[in-house]
């Protein structure tokens, strides 16, 4: 029973990490930036969601509000910060680290601002369904309607995203701009707008991850909470395990990470909470430096 419970906890957490990883991948594919502020943006969207919940009372209205808020904010960040960054800091010794530093700065700004506005109050979001476990033959599982809902929603979102990428013109434009921006531009795609769209989609996905991480945990999300740190690190690690370039990789990376953390905590030691993801990341990168699904870098000379 322990085994099953551990598995179910891991897969639910993994689904949330997978969403976070997907938003990292979307940003990476559209602008070649690893967005360290992604978790911060998810945090902000979750606060939007909280405001909606406390005004309108329903989780099902708050979720789209958080998604739209997250998407708009992300689009704004791309249009202002990232475009300026490309214009000013793409040469010189700083070029390689400028995006990393800028997004870290953004993370700091969001954290501090959020703590100024919402810090100290009881920010609590109650999930739409109960988080009490199902019981089978008298034993209670840790798997609850809420966890089931999270899994299903994440799966549906992933399906929609991959359909958009594979079957629609927008998806084609997204893929073309990521693959060869110059050629995409020449064939009439408005690459700048496509990039903004990539960020907006990522913002929406991150918002869902933030909302679910909150209700799956103890119902609150604050910049100093463990839930938030996990979101920050795990989304990134899951994306890297998957290879940064691949949506499927992100999903598998997220699930693998969620399961591994869950099993390590259960069977090795619960004190390894933060060091486990690091060890998992190092192990994967030692075997495949470009991630499991990442394309090998082309020969440069």
């Amino acid at each position: 029973m322990d085994f099953l419970n551990t598995f179910l906890i891991g897969i639910t957490a993994g689904a949330i990490y997978a969403l976070m990883a997907i938003s990292m991948v979307l940003v990476w594919r559209s602008t070649r930036v690893v967005n360290f502020a992604q978790a911060g943006m998810a945090l902000l969207s979750t606060y939007f969601g909280f405001e909606a919940v406390s005004k309108l009372g329903s989780f099902w209205i708050a979720l789209p509000v958080a998604m739209v808020g997250g998407a708009l904010f992300a689009a704004l960040v791309e249009m202002i910060l990232i475009r300026l960054l490309v214009k000013h800091s793409s040469t010189g010794p700083i070029a390689g680290v400028a995006p990393i530093i800028a997004t870290l700065g953004l993370l700091g700004v969001i954290r501090a601002t959020a703590a100024m506005i919402w810090g100290g109050q009881d920010v609590r979001i109650v999930g739409p369904v109960s988080n009490d476990g199902y019981s089978i033959n008298g034993t209670t599982l840790v798997f609850s309607p809420l966890k089931l809902l999270i899994l299903v929603t994440v799966l549906v979102l992933m399906l929609i995203l991959s359909l958009v990428f594979q079957k629609t013109n927008i998806g084609l434009a997204l893929r073309a701009s990521a693959y060869a921006p110059e050629i995409a531009k020449l064939s009439g795609i408005k690459v700048d707008w496509v990039r903004t769209l990539g960020w907006a989609l990522a913002g929406a996905a991150g918002a869902v991850a933030g909302m679910f991480q909150t209700v799956n945990g103890n119902g609150t999300l604050s910049p100093d909470s463990i839930e938030f740190s996990l979101l920050l690190v795990s989304g990134f690690i899951a994306a890297v395990i998957g290879g940064l370039d691949s949506l499927i990789g992100a999903v598998i990376g997220g699930l693998v990470l969620g399961l591994m953390i869950s099993f390590v905590l259960m069977y090795v030691s619960s004190g390894l909470f933060f060091i486990a993801p690091f060890v998992i990341l190092l192990t994967v990168l030692f075997v495949r430096p470009q991630g499991i699904f990442g394309a090998k870098a082309a020969r440069r000379a």
């Binding site: 990476w28 690893v34 680290v97 990393i100 690690i237 890297v240 940064l244 990168l285």
Partner: peptide, 8 residues
């Protein structure tokens, strides 16, 4: 390289 190292 780059982002991978930063994340690690």
């Amino acid at each position: 390289s780059g982002p991978y190292l930063a994340g690690t």
